[in-house]
Amino acid sequence: MKADWLLLTPLARFGDLGLLLLRWITGAFLIYQSYDNIFSAAGMDEFEKFLTQFGFPAPELTAPLCVWAQFLCGILFILGLLTRWAGLLTTFVFIVAVWMVHWPQDFPGWWPALILVFLGILFATAGAGRYSADALIERRRSHDRHPA
């Protein structure tokens, strides 16, 4: 009993709620940082110039791919839908960002992109948790395989 309080094991029952909140804030951030590039031609042009500045190949192609990946992953995280796929894609996008953009910066400059790499890894490995569209799909699949 004392070990439970020392290790705060009673908090484990809120793990799915923690995943839900983390998915929501991560998704909201990804949508926030990408929506203006999607809904504004000027925003996309600015992002293409940014990628050009850092030596990205074919910025006219990579800019929309990057922006749409972030935007769609943000939506998927919020819904908890295809969360593992969204996690892998987010990990890839932000590894590239760290490598191509943030590498010469100091550690605080890496931090936002680096956190998104590790959030992507977390969502890819842990999944979305109980409060998600993925969980609903899995319950349906399980029910279809083993009807009562």
Score class of each variant (00 low, 15 high):
Arg13Leu: 10
Ala42Phe: 01
Asp36Met: 08
Phe92Pro: 02
Ile78Lys: 02
Ala148Val: 09
Trp24Lys: 00
Ala133Phe: 15
Ser142Ala: 14
Phe118Val: 01
Ile31Pro: 10
Leu6Arg: 11
Gly15Met: 05
Phe50Val: 04
Leu72Trp: 05
Ile95Lys: 03
Phe118Gln: 01
Lys2Gly: 03
Trp68Thr: 15
Leu79Ser: 07
Trp85Ile: 13
Thr52Val: 03
Arg84Gly: 01
Ala42Tyr: 01
Trp110Gln: 14
Gly129Phe: 03
Asp144Pro: 01
Pro10Met: 07
Lys2Thr: 08
Leu30Val: 03
Ala148Asn: 10
Ala69Tyr: 00
Asp4Tyr: 07
Gly74Lys: 05
Arg130Lys: 14
Thr62Tyr: 04
Phe14Gln: 10
Leu19Glu: 01
Ala42Ser: 12
Trp103Pro: 01
Leu65Tyr: 08
Ala126Ser: 12
Ala86Val: 01
Leu19Trp: 01
Ala135Val: 00
Gln53Ser: 09
Gly15Asp: 15
Ser34Pro: 06
Arg13Lys: 15
Ala124Val: 03
Leu82Lys: 12
Arg23Gly: 05
Phe92Gly: 13
Ala41Asp: 14
Pro59Leu: 06
Lys2Arg: 12
Asp144Leu: 15
Pro57Gln: 08
Lys49Ala: 15
Phe123Ile: 03
Leu6Tyr: 07
Ala69Cys: 11
Lys49Phe: 01
Ala41Arg: 14
Thr91Phe: 01
Leu7Ala: 11
Phe54Ser: 09
Ser40Asn: 15
Trp85Ala: 07
Thr52Glu: 15
Ile38Glu: 03
Phe56Leu: 07
Trp24Gly: 03
Ile31Leu: 14
Asp4Ser: 13
Leu122Ile: 05
Ser34Phe: 02
Phe123Met: 06
Ser132Lys: 04
Leu6Phe: 09
Pro64Leu: 06
Asp144Met: 13
Ala58Arg: 04
Pro147Gln: 11
Trp111Phe: 12
Arg13Val: 10
His102Ala: 13
Gly109Cys: 10
Cys66Met: 10
Asp4His: 12
Leu81Gln: 00
Cys66Lys: 06
Ile121Phe: 11
Ala3Glu: 09
Pro10Lys: 11
Thr9Val: 04
Thr26Asn: 05
Val101Ala: 08
Gly120Gln: 10
Thr62Asn: 07
Met100Gln: 15
Trp111Leu: 15
Phe118Ile: 00
Leu76Val: 00
Ser142Asn: 15
Met1Asp: 12
Met44Tyr: 10
Val96Ile: 15
Phe123Val: 02
Arg23Val: 02
